[in-house]
Amino acid sequence: MKFGVVIFPGSNCDCDCRRVVEQVMEQPVDLIWHEADSVDGYDCIILPGGFSYGNYLRAGAIASHSPVMGAVKKAAADGKLVMGICNGFQVLAEAGLLPGVLQRNKNLRFICKFLHLKVEHNKSAFTNACSPGQVLRIPIAHDEGKYYVDTKVLAEMEAKGQVLFRYCDAGGTVSAEANPNGSLGNIAGICNRKGNVMGMMPYPERSAEEILTSADGRLIFESMLRHLRQVWK
């Protein structure tokens, strides 16, 4: 299964994603320059974390107009897997590939810490290796991660199972105390209606090896591989 990791000017986590795909998941992976006009030949495209274009204007806003995003939209339409992590999620939201927006954290500060995520269901390309309700320990590191979407769209998303991860406590309880940034409904990660484009604020590649104190993030990469190999459903 071939992965491509996009580099925008200001991407910081491209090499972290590459390492996990290549060294941990043992899959071939290329770095893709933001000026590329095609991403054909990849099974999965990852938009990594960082500060594309310094996050000037709005996080992800400028990168969403990069040449490569035309190709990413085509890949999404073709049913290829697209995953946006942190800044990548912001880019996908700005590009209209995912519903909703990411606003500044409620406390108006950057927050970097390990926390817990509740897996909403395992009927998705990104969660099928998890059990429903499983609690994952994965870190966040962002300034603009407060997810917001209007009530009508949220209701649709909930109905279609588009909410994949919610912030929770260690026991799996989704509560206001466990919400780090003021996200609507504690939402940490979502997918599109078709289920092939996913965005999440937490960093699975930062928790994909035991030495980093959690390997839970691996489950997300494993889910994608299982999906691509059609071993679930």
Binding site: N12, C13, D16, R19, F110, C112, P139, E205, I211, L212
Partner: peptide
């Protein structure tokens, strides 16, 4: 203070802030 700093980028930080020293792996 250190909550406001990204202290995990580059995925080398194997002992996070708060202990006597930070520990980084050499991949």
């Amino acid at each position: 203070i250190y909550r406001q700093y990204d202290h995990m980028a580059q995925i080398n930080t194997v002992v996070l802030p708060g202990s006597d020293a930070a520990v980084l792996r050499l991949k």
